[in-house]
Design a protein around this nucleic acid. Structure first.
Length: 287
DNA sequence: AACATTTTCAACCGCAGGAGT
DNA sequence: GACTCCTGCGGTTGAAAATGT
């Protein structure tokens, strides 16, 4: 019997026992306990030894995308969204590479975000998401909105450092070089660019506040902070927003967001509502 | 309330590359 | 060099949840 035939026989034998589909709580517990005692890696061995009727690949995926303790839950923050836009511009669909710079976020999550949110916007505008046109839309409208959102949230947060503290980040000429953002002056309370954009877009829907539980990754105790306070807390802890002009990109600080305490996310609101798109199409029709 | 449609995201698949034999 | 096994990546799928009618 050829090796290929043998392999197919084995696959058939295995597939009769292999479980597929959503993981049960019992399976999760089994996997978590096994890894706690034996560590991760060697997934095929793990799958056999742990008693799970799953493939090694499936175990690995479940652990990395869901069970691993440092996985963040909840929607992506504006800062994270901004970083994804920038890194995707730089590297394309290199999801795992992009994920390296967003601690606690998985490549799968980022990929899903891109497909469901970013590509959806492109579809609605009838633009190819990989086109220069769409990049221009992102650069001119989406990114400034995110920046505005970040600043806005900061201004409404009494515990956050002053707005000027965003300066070193957003004034960084290398920041968002790929997106061409360095021609947008974000250092003032409202740049000319933002003023123009806000003429086109109703930003009122972005008025939000939110609380998350920050589990200080450097030993500080849990505390409730505003989303942006969390961000600035991260900044204070030396993880300055990445410099895009070169390859010395530093990951965002790993801030653990405890699931149970996640009350409301600033990113719940749509990035663009249909009014925005309508406004945009009015001024820059692509169809 | 009931049904239809859309959106989200966990999980799967195939493929590629590296390590070991 | 050829082969197998393992791991990781990116694309895709489909069930569940959310939203609309």
């Amino acid at each position: 019997m050829s090796n290929i035939m043998k392999k197919r026989c084995n696959e058939n034998e295995e597939s009769t026992e292999q479980r597929k589909g959503p993981w049960t709580l019992e399976e999760d517990t089994l996997l978590t306990n096994y890894i706690a005692h034996n560590g991760e890696g060697r997934w095929n061995l793990l799958a056999k030894s742990s008693g799970l009727k799953r493939k090694g690949k499936s175990c690995r995926l479940r652990w990395l995308n869901y069970l691993k303790p440092d996985i963040k839950r909840g929607n992506l923050t504006p800062q994270e969204q901004l970083l994804i836009l920038e890194l995707h511009c730089k590297w394309g669909n290199r999801w795992s590479k992009i994920a390296q710079y967003l601690p606690g976020r998985t490549d799968n999550e980022i990929k899903n975000y891109w497909r469901t949110r970013v590509q959806k916007q492109a579809r609605q505008l009838n633009i190819d998401s990989s086109s220069h046109q769409f990049l221009e839309v992102v650069r001119s409208f989406w990114v400034p909105r995110l920046i505005h959102k970040i600043k806005d949230n900061t201004n409404t947060n009494t515990r956050a450092p002053p707005t000027d503290s965003l300066g070193p980040v957003l004034q960084d000429n290398n920041f968002s070089h790929n997106l061409g953002l360095n021609n947008i002056d974000c250092s003032t309370s409202m740049s000319q660019d933002l003023a123009k954009i806000s003429q086109l877009m109703d930003l009122s829907d972005l008025e939000t506040t939110s609380s998350v539980c920050l589990e200080g990754s450097r030993g500080s105790s849990n505390q409730y902070v505003n989303e942006d306070s969390r961000y600035f807390h991260c900044l204070e802890e030396e993880y300055i927003f990445p410099t895009m002009g070169n390859s010395d990109i530093l990951p965002l600080q790993d801030c653990h967001v405890a699931d149970s305490t996640y009350e409301e996310d600033v990113t719940q609101d749509p990035m663009w509502n249909m009014d925005d798109i309508w406004h945009f199409e009015e001024y820059a029709p692509f169809n």
